[in-house]
Simulated scan of single mutants.
Amino acid sequence: MSIVADRAEQLVKEGRLTEAEQLFAQAVIGRQDPEAMNEFGWFLLQTGRLSYSESVFERLKRLAEAAGNDRWTAVALSGLGQVHDRLDQYEQAEREMRRSADLFLEEGDSANAAGVLSNLASVYVKKREFDRAETALLEALTNYEELGQSSQAAVVRGNLGVVYLRKGNLDKAEELLLGAASVFQGHEMSQEFASQLANLATINRRRSLFDEADAKLRHATEIYERLGLEPEIVGTLLSRSSVSFDRGAFAEAEDLLYDALEREGKISRPQVLTDIYMGLSRALEYRGEYEEAERLLRSAIGLSERFGLWHHVATGYAKLGRLFAGQGQIPPAREFLRAAEQGFEAIAAHEEAEQIRKALHALPDGERMSAQSSMAT
């Protein structure tokens, strides 16, 4: 099966995603091979085929449970948790990952348990439950340290740094991220080192050190280029576009986003495409191309609805509302902001829903908004 996986990975790098999927499917369909099913499920997950990935992991879970195999049940639950995390179904993802980690521990597999706990921490961060994220990561860190897996322990410390970053403790975050990066200092061309650079760039961005942030992201991009990691390159291009927006370099941000779009077109991950469309809509709005900005936002919403990315759907409606508000068109602005509020509440994103309510409250009565009361985008 590893030969099939290697060939599929090469096809993805060449932009031949459909061929890669067909190759994998032919090797898996009709077989009761848990290893093959797991590899196929993860392949689909990484390429954004979330519904298909979910069905494969569900099939693996049923097969494992019927055989009374707790280890493969844990593997399937881990995959399902990742799928539901990306679908913004955080409660379900949490249950699956927690059960997966428990099963791995019962099987005496503390390494895989630690990996699942690290992913669970990411879910907690998205739910803004930072203390629970920290607890999960500390448990994972203990497991890796007891196993003597220093590289994995360093990655977890970096993840702890991200938690502190989200909590606003930039000094502690920087300390942890620099410590994690130092472990890979002798392997400057490693994916792990590039990942820590990208996280450190976020701290620079929070401190308005935009040139330093961009330099780190450029360095990370160079590493990913040499490693042939196209999905990671797209991620750094998106991050660099955010830095460009922050410093008012809208044309630069637009160029970076079009570069990301061209690269992502070969991979076609719905969630990433949606992020790119939303970024481009911001650049187009700045240039006064409101109709094109609206078209991209509607495309982003449609794509997100098709793949069940409900947080992205709500975000898209929020951006549409602000786009119309910025033009002084109050009725459609109110309509889209209300849709955003309902969308965020439906997925228990209460803080974001509250921000939308504040935006709705700030809208003036009447059909149009004066220039003085225009909302910021």
Rank of each mutant, 00 (worst) to 15 (best):
E354G: 02
V125Y: 02
E9S: 15
T47E: 02
D102C: 05
A67V: 01
L280M: 09
S182R: 15
A213N: 14
F344C: 02
Q152D: 13
I203S: 03
G326Q: 05
L77S: 00
E14G: 12
E285G: 02
E174N: 15
D131M: 07
L77Q: 00
A249E: 15
R269V: 03
A353T: 02
G279H: 07
T135Y: 07
G228L: 07
E134V: 14
E129M: 14
L105I: 13
L60A: 06
R322K: 15
D365P: 00
E335H: 10
D6G: 04
Y90E: 13
M369V: 11
F193T: 03
A215I: 10
S373W: 06
Q342I: 01
A260N: 03
I356D: 05
E230P: 00
M97N: 02
A318V: 09
D255T: 11
R368H: 10
E262K: 11
G79F: 00
Y52R: 09
Q22G: 09
A376T: 11
G179P: 03
G158Q: 03
Y164K: 12
D211K: 10
F43R: 01
N38G: 02
L320C: 09
G326C: 09
K61I: 00
H84Q: 09
G41K: 08
A201C: 05
N143R: 07
L209P: 00
V116H: 01
A348H: 13
I347E: 07
A181Y: 12
Y124V: 06
E264Y: 00
E9A: 15
L320Q: 10
D33Y: 06
G308F: 12
A260T: 00
L147F: 07
A154V: 06
L170D: 11
V243E: 08
G186N: 14
E107L: 08
V83S: 04
E354Q: 12
S281V: 12
A213K: 06
L309V: 11
Q46H: 14
T377R: 15
Y317S: 10
D88G: 02
N169Y: 11
R322A: 13
R7H: 13
L303A: 05
L87P: 08
E294G: 09
R269M: 01
E352K: 11
R287P: 06
G248C: 02
